[in-house]
Computed example of a mutant assay.
Amino acid sequence: MARKAGLASAKIDLVAAWRDAGIYSARERAALAWTEALTLMSQRHVPDSLYEDVQATFTHQETVFLTSAIGAINAWNRIAGALQFAPPVPVL
């Protein structure tokens, strides 16, 4: 979907290494850091400094939308994992 939407292939391909890739904007890095922190919050505390960074980068409404999207995607992933859903194999 990201490729169809025109997102640069490098940004899609390097998202797992986003901290080291050097190709993401400050806004993208803030969103990725927030996503990672919320996804892993059962393992470690989300630092107040990260929340402050997100607030400085995004409006309140954008922060709410971003946080809601992260929560929804995490829920879908947990449901899919628990029920052993597999993505469809693309037909080439």
Score class of each variant (00 low, 15 high):
residue 1 M to K: 03
residue 1 M to P: 03
residue 1 M to V: 06
residue 1 M to C: 03
residue 2 A to D: 05
residue 3 R to Q: 12
residue 3 R to T: 11
residue 5 A to L: 15
residue 5 A to K: 08
residue 7 L to G: 04
residue 7 L to Y: 13
residue 8 A to L: 11
residue 8 A to Y: 04
residue 8 A to T: 06
residue 8 A to E: 15
residue 8 A to Q: 12
residue 9 S to P: 14
residue 9 S to L: 11
residue 9 S to Y: 10
residue 9 S to D: 15
residue 10 A to Y: 00
residue 10 A to H: 00
residue 10 A to V: 04
residue 11 K to Y: 12
residue 12 I to L: 09
residue 13 D to H: 02
residue 14 L to T: 03
residue 15 V to C: 00
residue 16 A to D: 13
residue 17 A to I: 06
residue 17 A to W: 02
residue 17 A to Y: 06
residue 18 W to G: 04
residue 19 R to H: 09
residue 19 R to Q: 11
residue 20 D to R: 15
residue 21 A to M: 07
residue 22 G to S: 07
residue 22 G to H: 08
residue 22 G to T: 09
residue 23 I to P: 00
residue 23 I to H: 04
residue 23 I to A: 05
residue 23 I to Q: 05
residue 24 Y to I: 08
residue 24 Y to V: 07
residue 25 S to I: 15
residue 25 S to M: 12
residue 25 S to K: 10
residue 25 S to H: 13
residue 25 S to E: 15
residue 25 S to V: 10
residue 30 A to N: 13
residue 31 A to L: 15
residue 31 A to K: 08
residue 31 A to W: 06
residue 31 A to C: 14
residue 32 L to R: 03
residue 32 L to Y: 02
residue 33 A to I: 04
residue 34 W to F: 07
residue 34 W to R: 06
residue 34 W to K: 02
residue 35 T to A: 11
residue 36 E to H: 03
residue 37 A to M: 11
residue 39 T to S: 10
residue 39 T to K: 05
residue 40 L to T: 07
residue 40 L to R: 08
residue 41 M to F: 09
residue 41 M to T: 12
residue 42 S to G: 07
residue 43 Q to L: 14
residue 43 Q to Y: 11
residue 44 R to C: 01
residue 44 R to Q: 02
residue 45 H to Y: 10
residue 45 H to W: 08
residue 46 V to R: 02
residue 47 P to V: 13
residue 47 P to Y: 14
residue 47 P to I: 13
residue 49 S to L: 11
residue 49 S to H: 10
residue 50 L to N: 12
residue 50 L to M: 12
residue 51 Y to L: 14
residue 52 E to A: 14
residue 52 E to P: 00
residue 52 E to L: 09
residue 53 D to H: 08
residue 53 D to G: 03
residue 55 Q to G: 02
residue 57 T to L: 02
residue 57 T to N: 02
residue 57 T to G: 01
residue 58 F to W: 13
residue 58 F to S: 11
residue 58 F to P: 14
residue 59 T to N: 03
residue 59 T to D: 09
residue 59 T to Q: 03
residue 59 T to V: 05
residue 60 H to K: 06
residue 61 Q to A: 08
residue 61 Q to M: 04
residue 62 E to I: 00
residue 62 E to M: 02
residue 62 E to Q: 05
residue 64 V to Q: 03
residue 64 V to K: 02
residue 64 V to E: 06
residue 65 F to I: 10
residue 65 F to Y: 09
residue 66 L to Q: 07
residue 66 L to N: 05
residue 66 L to E: 06
residue 66 L to I: 10
residue 67 T to C: 13
residue 68 S to N: 05
residue 68 S to R: 03
residue 68 S to W: 09
residue 69 A to M: 13
residue 69 A to S: 10
residue 71 G to T: 03
residue 71 G to W: 01
residue 71 G to M: 01
residue 72 A to Q: 04
residue 72 A to D: 01
residue 73 I to P: 08
residue 73 I to S: 09
residue 74 N to L: 07
residue 75 A to R: 13
residue 76 W to S: 01
residue 77 N to K: 08
residue 77 N to M: 10
residue 79 I to G: 02
residue 80 A to G: 03
residue 83 L to C: 09
residue 84 Q to D: 15
residue 85 F to I: 06
residue 86 A to R: 12
residue 87 P to C: 10
residue 87 P to H: 11
residue 88 P to K: 01
residue 88 P to G: 01
residue 88 P to L: 06
residue 89 V to R: 14
residue 91 V to I: 11
residue 91 V to H: 09
residue 92 L to C: 14
residue 92 L to G: 15
